[in-house]
């Protein structure tokens, strides 16, 4: 149960970061970031559902909904006190410089250009 709540809470923090109210606190600058966060949040909710298994048939659904609701309330309470601090990890993640795109194979045309430049 605790892991379900924790994973769902993480998902809700990411979803909260994409909400208009909290985008600035989360340091979101591009629509692509919103989409990415929502996809990750969806995956986390799926993981929470998977982790919510119980010994009884159907208990997974109950545990997921209960854990998700408790996590949601906890996240909103935390956001209401200090949204910037709650969303700081998201801001840090989004502000990290993205690794430079290193193409696996240099296109043939670029190779030819470079060769010509070298003489």
């Amino acid at each position: 149960m605790p892991d379900t709540i924790l994973i769902a809470a993480l998902a809700f923090v990411l979803l909260a970061a994409t909400a208009h109210r909290h985008r600035r606190d989360a340091g979101i600058v591009a629509p692509g970031q919103v989409r990415a966060l929502r996809v990750v949040a969806g995956a986390l909710l799926l993981a929470a559902f998977v982790r919510a298994a119980g010994p009884l048939a159907g208990e997974r659904i109950v545990r997921f909904l209960v854990g998700g609701s408790v996590a949601g309330i906890a996240v909103v309470l935390a956001l209401s006190f200090d949204a910037a601090r709650v969303l700081a990890p998201v801001r840090w993640l989004l502000s990290r410089p993205r690794p430079a795109a290193v193409p696996a194979t240099v296109p043939a045309r670029a190779r030819a250009t470079a060769r010509a430049q070298r003489g």
Binding site: A16, A19, V76, L77, L79, S80
Partner: peptide, 9 residues
């Protein structure tokens, strides 16, 4: 949905 994460004291 817009108010989903809104709680103002």
């Amino acid at each position: 949905f817009a108010d989903f994460f809104t709680l103002r004291w």
